[in-house]
Computed example of a mutant assay.
Amino acid sequence: MAGPQWDERVWRAVGSPLLAGASEGPLLGESVAVKDLYDVAGFAVGAGNPAWLAASAVAAVSAPVVSTLLAAGASVRGISRTDEFAYSLAGTNPHYGTPPNPAAPGRVPGGSSSGSAAAVALGEATIGLGTDTGGSIRVPAAYQGLFGIRTTHDVVRRDGLVPLAPTFDTVGWLTRSPDLLARVGDVLLPGSTTSADRRLVMVPALLALADADVAAAVAGWQPDLGLRLPEAWPLDDLSSWRDAFVTLQGWEAWQAHGAWLEDRLDTLGADVRGRFERARLVTEGEASAARDVVAAARETIRDLVADRIVVLPAAPSVPPSLGPDLGERLQAARAATLALTCIAGIGGLPAVTVPLTTAGGLPCGVCLVAAPGRDKDLLDLVNQGSVLRV
């Protein structure tokens, strides 16, 4: 081929297919955009950073989750872009460019699973394989009008995956339909807990963390389901939970990559470099204190969720527009987003995003969160198209 015939902001490598799947299986005919954090046989992992790619060895075998999708009949369409080391929620990679957002042109695509989301939204793949640590499935799903799932922590194997913060890292995927989202779950989710209890509740204090247009869309979602309103949660400690999440995430990120980055921080874009520089300063004592806060918060969150399904905004705003002062605006958006997304992250809970549209016509998302292991319950609920009209 004389040159790349694909959008390099979306894809690092593309084939027809890049890797063929089995000749039969429940996902026969589907195509996967694999986030550039997973091992793909015959390719090195780039993790969104050219220096890391140059230093990486070619993978001999694919990550188990990739191999499972291939065995189910799906093909790998290609390797999709990610924010550097998945340490961002924006999707604005300084080395390769910002993937387009077909649902909201001129606005950020959301990260760090930005390439996988864009590939699916553009119709260039049917399944976007990504990860979610602090919202990296939920945010691009909301920003690009997609369905997405962050799975229960550790329910899907993370072998062959470049880590960010193992306490919070999870496997996730995005699709354009709830049916396909659920069918991928049938392949990847082993023996998920099921429950007949599908009471949906909404917490006004969490809804209030979103901008007015997003809050209105989420509050108006499926009123015929009889959401129980209000349900008061004791959230006075939410800001300290978020701060502990950020501290522990940073400490684990530096443990995972600090030795390599110590003399290579200048290879990073400004926003991710700033996070790693702050992470570098986190002491073991600070990390230990944050871990204690996270452990206590996890117990509280799981008790609050209990056997219900909690409805909250997937992200607090519509996708920020590109243009002047973007960096500053993204920092503010990140802080606001983590206040919502850290709930499932700290709890290790499954979270499914359903696309919505604001009154102004911009994409946003509603997120359904349940107890650990109820991934398939959430997928089944969202897939009941006759009940859940989006």
Rank of each mutant, 00 (worst) to 15 (best):
D271R: 13
L122D: 01
V61W: 08
A196R: 10
V387E: 14
T247D: 08
E262A: 14
V203P: 05
E286W: 03
A208W: 08
V76N: 07
D375A: 09
A351E: 12
R81Q: 15
N101A: 04
A22L: 05
G323K: 08
R298D: 08
P355G: 07
L161Q: 02
W233G: 11
T170S: 10
L340F: 09
P223H: 09
G347M: 05
A60C: 07
A290T: 09
C342Q: 14
V390Q: 14
V34L: 06
R329A: 12
V310I: 12
E299M: 07
A55F: 08
L248Y: 01
R389V: 14
W254Y: 00
V369M: 10
T175Q: 09
A72C: 08
I343N: 05
A359T: 13
V218S: 04
P320G: 12
N49V: 15
R176N: 06
D213K: 12
A22K: 05
G348D: 07
D197V: 07
C364M: 01
V61G: 07
L362N: 03
A47F: 01
P99I: 02
E284G: 14
A215C: 11
S23H: 14
G373A: 06
V14Y: 08
Y38W: 09
I149H: 06
T126A: 04
G361L: 07
L209D: 10
A33E: 03
Q144H: 02
P140N: 04
S177H: 05
R389N: 12
P316L: 05
V294R: 03
D213V: 14
D132L: 02
R275S: 00
L207V: 09
A295N: 09
A335W: 11
V187I: 08
N93K: 07
A196E: 12
V32K: 05
A205G: 11
D263A: 15
G48I: 04
V282K: 00
L281I: 01
L53H: 13
A2R: 14
S386H: 15
R138L: 03
D303N: 11
L330H: 10
L362G: 02
P316D: 06
G258R: 01
T247W: 01
R138M: 02
L188V: 11
P166R: 04
L304W: 15
T126E: 10
D266S: 11
A55T: 06
L312D: 08
Y38A: 05
R264N: 10
G128Y: 04
P17E: 11
H257P: 04
P230S: 13
L229M: 12
I127L: 02
A216T: 11
S88M: 03
L227V: 15
G73A: 09
L326C: 09
L70R: 10
G73E: 10
L206Q: 12
